[in-house]
């Protein structure tokens, strides 16, 4: 499904939150750039507090960036006119983390699913809106919803699929999935993942998949970006991230969640040390305080996210980058000197 057309792009996104009663700021997001192709799933992974949800909220227009641009179909979010703004609203949708909390408890779920059509004036009549809402619900495998069904009548996974139906009802091109499965039981999780996968297959929608669950990432994502304390530290095709994992943080993250096989733990770094406060970030690499291979040079400047020799594999680590380059160089040299 993936092709080269760019649906949405964010460039150098920064978001700082002022700390109440002080001149300091929380640096929630620093210099994050991401590009989303049509039909592509990009997973944004990281621990809680890494800024991944903030990135999602900025892309959705729920939070204004401190600086940086979000461009949807060629137009920047803050330069849109009324009509473009409406197209953006219809074209960029979201599924939220808590299935119960993301549906208004006072409203029938059918009204919640219909709401985007109604607010964005995309329905011909109330009847048309209701019909399309019902169709969206059926598309995610929910039958038997009546105009009176309310969120508390439904199970968690059914609620989450109502949320997906709401995100789909406007036929969006891009959906932000903010940990859509973290509040669900394993079986419900599988059901929701299957729904999401089917939807992408049939509509060609792009996903930004925000999660800390790497097992989920592997099954759905085409590309993966790893965030640590507000910055993307590694970004690559999903297979490359799992296979080559250049950044020591990615390595540690994989070590902390994947594979219940103790023998395989050896290859991965285990996280030690303190996470720096996002209010007082150290001058150099934010991960240096927990990194096994960090040296003094890591603590002087923030390492830029640089394209590794392998196409599309970006990493923000001066050691791994040079090591990888060395390896590359070594193999080239080996080839040249048989």
């Amino acid at each position: 499904m993936t092709n080269d057309e760019t649906v949405l792009e964010c460039a150098e996104l920064v978001r700082h939150f002022p700390v109440k009663g002080s001149d300091k700021v929380v640096q929630a997001v620093n210099d994050v750039s991401l590009t989303f192709g049509a039909g592509e799933t990009v997973a944004l992974v990281g621990e809680s507090g890494s800024g991944k949800t903030t990135v999602g909220r900025m892309i959705l227009g729920l939070l204004a960036p401190t600086s940086g641009r979000i461009v949807y179909q060629g137009t920047a979010l803050d330069e849109m006119d009324r009509r473009q703004r409406r197209d953006f609203r219809a074209g960029v949708q979201a599924v939220f983390q808590d299935p119960y909390d993301s549906l208004d408890p006072r409203r029938p779920v059918l009204a919640s699913v219909r709401e985007p059509l109604r607010r964005l004036e995309l329905e011909e009549s109330a009847r048309d809106g209701t019909r399309r809402a019902m169709a969206a619900l059926e598309a995610v495998g929910l039958a038997g919803i009546t105009p009176k069904t309310r969120p508390h009548d439904l199970s968690g996974s059914a609620c989450q699929r109502v949320g997906i139906a709401r995100a789909l009802v406007t036929r969006p091109r891009f959906i932000v999935l903010d940990e859509p499965t973290s509040a669900l039981s394993p079986i419900a999780r599988a059901e929701v993942m299957r729904s999401l996968h089917d939807v992408q297959q049939s509509t060609g929608v792009s996903y930004l998949f925000i999660t800390h669950d790497l097992a989920v990432v592997e099954s759905l994502a085409h590309r993966v970006a790893v965030m640590y304390l507000g910055r993307v530290v590694e970004a690559a095709a999903a297979g490359d991230v799992f296979g080559r994992r250049l950044h020591p943080y990615t390595e540690a993250l994989l070590g902390s969640v994947l594979f219940p096989d103790p023998d395989r733990l050896d290859g991965f770094g285990v996280l030690r040390g303190e996470i720096p406060s996002p209010i007082d970030l150290p001058p150099g690499c934010a991960f240096a305080s927990r990194c096994a291979i960090a040296g003094d040079d890591c603590r002087t400047a923030v390492p830029p996210l640089i394209d590794d020799a392998v196409a599309g594999h970006h990493v923000a680590c001066i050691r791994q980058l040079s090591r990888s380059r060395d390896r590359q160089l070594a193999s080239t040299l080996r080839k040249e000197t048989p």
Binding site: R57, S102, D104, S112, E115, P116
Partner: peptide, 27 residues
């Protein structure tokens, strides 16, 4: 609450968020 974010993503303007979601839930 997430349903307020959801309402905004659904295209509700501030007035519609208040009248359509916040006031009914505060009734």
């Amino acid at each position: 609450r997430m349903f307020i974010d959801a309402a905004r993503v659904s295209g509700c303007r501030p007035r519609q968020v208040i009248l359509g979601h916040i006031v009914p839930n505060s009734l």
